[in-house]
Amino acid sequence: MTREEALAAITKALVATVGSVDGDITEETNLVDDGMLDSLDSMTFLFELENDLGQKLEAIDETYEDFRVGSIVDIVVQATA
């Protein structure tokens, strides 16, 4: 999966979680720090993302805290390589 495709998958999971997104989602966006997801939403977001990708993102364990989109893109690209 390319970075663009990973970004699209992340945006899709975000929309599935919160309903709609104002503005563009870029690799600099931080989904938690920028107020798009609270801790409960982040669970749903990860569920939607893994569901859409059809695989578990092993790099995102229970202690994972980095919700910068670029970091998640890295993980998705690596997991789907």
Partner: peptide, 8 residues
Amino acid sequence: PKIERIVD
């Protein structure tokens, strides 16, 4: 189980 996180 699908997702687990430690928060606060």
